[in-house]
């Protein structure tokens, strides 16, 4: 464990707390893409198949349970909770995310570290996580004005993988045979998707203005 990775995990946790806060405090999920949340459930379930087979540390197991539990809770809330599901902007959340699932799975069948069930699903979860934010980013552009909590949620979500990139650079230099080129390349693509969001987020923060994404 290094400071970059710990910062990344904490930033990831903060993004989930901000989203839960927004949904429970405002009893609204307006501006949130249900499709992105569903993709994250698939990402965590596919990635943490080793939850009960490989014990790495208490921290690792607890965080995996928190990520799986919170992502399921958010999807349940947006689909089933009477008050919340009414605020879901279904007509704005139109990204065909099934193609993202299919594409990531096909890519995982072609590009993986070992051709085993667990490794294929791990690579699938890595590729899917890189594109999972797309429905949310498209929805933000469609909905024009972005409320603060939603903007902060996406910001922390993008920042967490940027910390992980620093973690991979650090591990590359400190651990002799450290190689996670799948996660590294995919993490770079994932963070690149946030580039324009980060730009507009910084502009809005600098001008102390509302976050506006160009349509």
């Amino acid at each position: 464990m290094n400071i970059f990775r710990f910062a990344g995990d904490m930033t990831h946790l903060i993004s989930i707390v901000v989203l839960l806060l927004k949904i429970y405090a405002t009893k609204s999920c307006s501006g949130i893409s249900l499709k992105t949340q569903e993709l994250y459930v698939i990402v965590f379930l596919a990635r943490y198949l080793d939850l009960f087979t490989d014990f790495i540390s208490v921290y690792n197991t607890v965080m995996k349970l928190v990520f799986i539990g919170s992502s399921l809770a958010i999807v349940w809330c947006m689909r089933m909770h009477r008050a919340v599901k009414r605020t879901y902007d279904k007509e704005l959340d139109t990204f065909r995310h099934y193609f993202l699932v299919l594409g990531s799975f096909v890519l995982a069948l072609l590009l993986h570290e070992k051709f085993t069930f667990q490794e294929i699903f791990w690579a699938f979860s890595i590729y899917l996580e890189a594109v999972a934010i797309l429905p949310q980013l498209v929805m933000l552009q469609r909905s024009g004005n972005v409320d603060n909590l939603t903007g902060q949620y996406v910001f922390f979500l993008g920042a967490y993988r940027a910390f992980y990139i620093l973690n991979w650079i650090y591990r590359f230099f400190t651990e002799p045979h450290f190689s996670r080129w799948i996660a590294c390349l995919s993490g770079l693509v994932q963070t690149a998707f946030y580039a324009d969001f980060f730009y507009y987020y910084f502009i809005s923060w600098k001008n102390n203005a509302k976050l506006q994404l160009p349509a």
Binding site: D50, I56, M63, K114, Q118, Y164, R180
Partner: peptide, 10 residues
């Protein structure tokens, strides 16, 4: 035992 490809990250 460390898992096959060092999946020690989240």
């Amino acid at each position: 035992t460390t898992p096959p490809s060092a999946k020690d990250e989240l």
